[in-house]
Nucleic acid binder design. Structure first.
Lengths: 172, 172
DNA sequence: TCTGATGTTTACGTTCACGTAAGATTTGGA
DNA sequence: TCCAAATCTTACGTGAACGTAAACATCAGA
């Protein structure tokens, strides 16, 4: 017979806000704030004053939110837009779980989901591209510096006995 | 005989703060602020009250600063640290231009420059890596969604006459 | 030389993304 | 049942990164 009251290690059940904060490396205040601005859904039926409770799924969601924020450098407002998409995807997944949707509507939902992912991908790709370019440029100038050092060493080695060389660091 | 007063299109000479702002896509206020916090060097000898003047080299520098800020998501303070490095590199370049340095010191300078670049590269690589991972994950789930749509279409095509298909979008 | 556009300094205002404090309430456990 | 620890709500505080306004001063061109 199943348990009736909340329990740790039970997945669908209940982490408190402090636990969640600890798990994702932030503070309760931040989590409440994210809820306040609409980034995180307010647990619908929480009779005002009661403690917030979270599932592990919600923890994962929060992790993803924070990741996107940090990697893309978006404001919470921009993030919210992107998450409206995520939100919709979740909705889609929920609907798709229940097999009782007409194939036409089903297709519609999947197309939407795809669109949302594409929009995120667009952003990520753009940033990744810019970073890659920067990285390439840095690698390039580093190479130049190394070459100059080698040239210098070569000339000195030809004049004086050899000394210590470059400290190791692969080209990767 | 060379010109004596400032002139546009003369490289070593003088852009005003508004021009610079326009060129890099920011505001005069921001530029003054960056100078105030020490990100941009104050033009040494500007007798207080006179207009700031910038060279094209400084414009490039500012562009780079803004680029790093946006791509790495650093605070101005963190950025300042990284730029102490850049600063040193500039110093190095200046010294290396004047041929009158002992090869030993020369090597020292080059090694320093290399170290600074490596530190920047470290940061950039880390971020680029994380972004790449995120991108891969997104691509993956997108693939899954596409597959499901295809499956759905296949089934429907087997039942009804064919209709419109996926709108084009290469896998890249 | 004069003048309108652009700058300069100083200082207070603003937005974002939380931090912090206070007082009441809730919760899980002894 | 009783209690200490964690939460809740409300509200004001804060640091970073500029925006904006005011009262001059400079600059480039006519």
């Amino acid at each position: 017979m199943p348990r009736k009251r909340p329990d740790k290690s039970d997945d669908d059940a209940s982490l408190r806000i402090g636990d969640v904060a600890g798990l994702v490396g932030t503070t309760p205040r931040t989590i409440r704030y994210y809820e306040e601005v609409g980034l995180l859904a307010e647990g619908a039926a929480r009779p005002a004053g009661r403690h917030r409770l979270y599932t592990h799924a919600e923890v994962e969601r929060l992790r993803e939110v924070i990741r996107l924020k940090e990697l893309l450098g978006l404001t919470l407002e921009e993030l919210k837009e992107l998450l409206a998409a995520e939100e919709a995807r979740a909705e889609v997944r929920a609907q798709l779980q229940r097999e009782d949707v007409a194939p036409g509507h089903r297709r519609e939902l999947l197309l939407q989901a795809g669109g949302h992912i594409d929009r995120q991908l667009e952003l990520v790709r753009k940033r990744a591209g810019e970073l890659a370019k920067l990285q390439a440029e840095l690698c390039d100038t580093r190479k130049r510096v190394r070459r100059r050092i080698r040239e210098l060493d070569a000339h000195r080695d030809a004049t004086f006995p050899p000394a210590q060389t470059l400290e190791g660091a692969g080209e990767r």
